[in-house]
Design a protein around this nucleic acid. Structure first.
Length: 450
RNA sequence: GAGGCGUUGGUGUAGCGGUAACACUGGAGAAUGUGGAUCUCCCUUCGAGGGUUCAACUCCCUCACGCCUCCCCA
């Protein structure tokens, strides 16, 4: 047993899992781009005030779980616990509120929390997210939700349901909170200690209390949607209408609130429905909402905003649980072997054109018997062995052996790429720039009628 | 952050106050010199450190890590 362990709440993504994450990353960010949400990358740490300020009244609790960093004895910065505040900070810092609105971003980053770990709750975890600044229209809310719905469907997550609610704009929320404080104050002595505290801070979150008596009390509370303004209700109606138009199934959850004060109006969550996940309360795989007051809270102008964030680890786990197949193949498809124990450089030379052609090629560096090398190639998951240094492979020839079909063929060196290509796929080869003439770059044909 | 339960080779497990067992996996070698078969052997001192004891993996303490309930959940 190694003496060193990963820090508490953190873990390694071994190659297969990392490959799975990469798949999800590609799918997510490509979709984001299709929706017009380019990726933004912000630092892994921020001034802690960025998070405390955006957190609003719940800052004491948010601060408690913050993963703070001390550099050269100086505190003041924290590993980011979420993605929205840093993106808002970047939006302001770069004056993007002065550029054409709305401004849209996507992100995919590790996040950190100083909480005690539990299953699916690590101190370092990954989140993808979308942020949209400058659009107050309900269509932006709908787009964000539709994106998420489409993404989850795209990756194959079916055991999930969408819950939406509206908690009113900044003005309405003062009334909402006042009404709720008034209601819950009547039961002050019956609420358990934890929930009593919420009376002072974020009243809305009393709806999240687990204590049975608290839930009874909460059930009798005034409905949030009856307390918000007509404008709020109209906005929410537009959102739900839009969801219906798009054929997105949802349920309205009157008690759905979010943990953060900066949310306004629309809030939503995509919740896992598999019984395994619902035992200890809802586990959401993505959630978000509107945060019209956030940018101003952070010292900027009054800019509307709406966004979503999703837990990658939760999504990955849920997909596995559901039996969704993710291509996590990391093995070399081709293995280069040799019967000549001292031809290391020749093996490399043989591998190079195959690698350039796009095959995944690994080399057996050893002097072991061909027998052992073949066995090793199979154990490494290779589908094809390219063998040199044997009787048959003299005079510029090699053997290309299909390890699955257990058949082989002696090939000229010049034809080895073609022969290997008959058995294993070439992998897409990323480039710094797309090939010219690719679809989308072809100019419109001129039309004489124009 | 609170309470609880755990931590035995790569994985999953057994075990007991006297110096560790099983399955699979893995490594080396043998023999075939184009393969996952067979044979032999190997990889563990039981999370880390300390204590009690003639003697601890087995008892106690501390720490680390994991899981559960709670808190929290951006």
């Amino acid at each position: 047993m190694p003496t060193y362990q990963a820090p508490r709440g953190m873990r390694d993504l071994l190659p297969e899992e990392a490959a799975g994450f990469d798949r999800l990353l590609s799918v997510t960010l490509a979709r984001a781009l299709r929706y017009g949400y380019p990726r933004i990358v912000t630092p892994v740490v921020e001034d802690r005030e960025v998070f405390l300020r955006s957190a609003g009244e719940t800052s004491d609790t948010a601060g408690k779980e913050m993963f703070e960093v001390v550099l050269h004895g100086q505190p003041g910065i924290a590993l980011r616990p979420e993605g929205t505040a840093p993106v808002a900070r970047a939006y302001l810092e770069h004056g993007l509120h002065k550029t054409p609105q709305p401004v849209r971003f996507s992100y995919w980053e590790p996040m950190f929390r100083g909480q005690r770990p539990q299953k699916l709750r690590w101190r370092q975890f990954w989140q993808w997210g979308l942020e949209n600044f400058g659009a107050a229209e309900p269509a932006a809310d709908i787009e964000i939700i539709e994106f998420t719905n489409g993404l989850l469907a795209d990756v194959g997550l079916t055991d999930v349901e969408l819950k939406v609610n509206s908690i009113g704009d900044t003005t309405s929320r003062a009334k909402v909170k006042a009404a709720l404080v008034e209601y819950f104050s009547k039961y002050r002595d019956e609420l358990d200690a934890d929930c009593k505290e919420r009376l002072e801070g974020s009243v809305l979150r009393i709806f999240d209390c687990k204590n049975p008596r608290d839930r009874e009390i909460a059930a009798g509370a005034p409905k949030i949607r009856e307390l918000i303004s007509d404008e709020d209700r109209a906005h929410f109606a537009a959102v739900t209408d839009g969801l219906e138009r798009l054929g997105i199934r949802y349920t309205i959850d009157d008690r759905k609130v979010r943990g953060f004060d900066y949310y306004t109006r629309t809030v939503f969550e995509f919740i896992l429905t598999d019984p395994e996940f619902t035992q200890a309360g809802d586990i959401s795989v993505a959630g978000g909402g509107r945060y019209d007051g956030l940018v101003r809270t952070m010292g900027g102008p009054d800019v509307a905003g709406v966004g979503v964030a999703g837990g990658v680890d939760v999504l990955y786990f849920a997909l596995k649980k559901q039996g969704v197949k993710i291509d996590e193949s990391v093995n070399a498809d081709v293995y280069v072997l040799s019967g000549d124990p001292d031809d290391g450089a020749d093996r490399l030379q043989l591998a190079t054109p195959l690698r350039e052609a796009g095959f995944r090629v690994a080399i057996d560096y050893s002097k072991r018997s061909l027998d052992k090398q073949l066995e090793s190639a199979v154990k490494h998951g290779a589908k094809v062995a390219v063998i040199r240094g044997t009787e048959e492979s003299r005079g510029g020839k090699v053997i290309v052996r299909d390890l699955v079909a257990k058949s082989q063929r002696v090939t000229r060196l010049a034809a080895v790429v073609v022969e290997v290509g008959r058995h294993v796929p070439k992998r897409p080869r990323p480039r710094l720039i797309d090939e010219p003439g690719a679809a989308g770059e072809t100019p419109f044909l001129s039309d004489p009628r124009d």
